[in-house]
Write a protein that binds this DNA or RNA. Structure first.
Lengths: 147, 147
DNA sequence: GTTAAATAGTTCACTTATTGAACTATATTA
DNA sequence: TAATATAGTTCAATAAGTGAACTATTTAAC
């Protein structure tokens, strides 16, 4: 099969999935947080000793963009900052009780809907899909020279 | 397998892939266009009789956001607007020669890199992956009630 | 056929997101 | 100890998004 056709199909499909998940998030997030802020909060809640640098790397954005996002989450009482005692340059980001609860609730709703979609697949199909996606991610991560 | 684990793995992998493609775009796009503007321009170049409403729907954003994007692309001479002669409300978006060339060149570079990644996969793996992704997209699209 | 409702797109005011350069503070290394 | 690297913030600017109000046009109702 031709590469262009494959990429076109991939793009069309992945765009649609992304759009749906994004719309889903916008619909289901009832507190005042945007669908851009949620992934950041989620990352902070699910990763211990998370730093701004981690987030910048994970989401492929600059550190100053992270500072702005973190400020917004902080202002809403969803996260706190904590300096490393040994390396005073480092600031750890931690979800507050409110932040954790928010992530848990939102994930629960998300999982319900996604679970509904996934019920259309055989267990084996899901496994194959995830494994291939992870393989692609691994290859892209390794294929990196300058970083 | 547990749903949460599946979703976590999916998110981690898809985030990484998205980040890599985005970084790739940022690196390879040499003209003054952002990695957000490129998908819109690409959509316009690849779809005849494309309208603002199409783009808003495809990318899951509001029509006023599209107007702003379209203005930026127009200012750069990458697209033009053309009113429908029959239904004077409709404005078709068309890529200019410059816009088409730009998409072609960028896609070529993208395909080269993506092709390199895909060479790590068997043809059958790629097919299975795309088919499963398309199935997911189809299910999510159908699962829609209000729209 | 005129009125009412729907549709396509734009404008506007506002918030959020991102960039990149300059900066502070701290650690590392030469 | 001096030079360099790292972590994070601040700042000014641009891009991107929302939602409400608006114009222009078409379609539907009566």
């Amino acid at each position: 099969m031709e590469l262009k056709e494959l990429v076109d199909r991939y793009q069309a499909a992945i765009n649609l999935v992304y759009r749906k998940v994004s719309i889903l998030l916008k619909e289901k997030i009832n507190v005042d947080i945007t669908s851009d802020q949620f992934p950041t909060l989620q990352y902070i809640a699910n990763n211990k000793k998370c730093t701004s640098t981690d987030i910048a790397y994970t989401f492929g954005i600059g550190k100053s963009a992270v500072t702005a996002q973190v400020n917004r989450l902080f202002d809403k009482g969803l996260i706190i900052r904590e300096r490393d005692e040994k390396d005073r340059r480092v600031v750890y980001l931690l979800a507050t009780e409110k932040g954790r609860e928010f992530v848990t609730n939102t994930e629960k709703i998300l999982f319900e809907v996604l679970g509904k979609y996934l019920s259309n697949f055989e267990d084996e199909e899901i496994n194959t899909f995830i494994q291939l996606l992870e393989k692609l991610a691994r290859i892209m991560d390794e294929g990196e020279v300058d970083e």
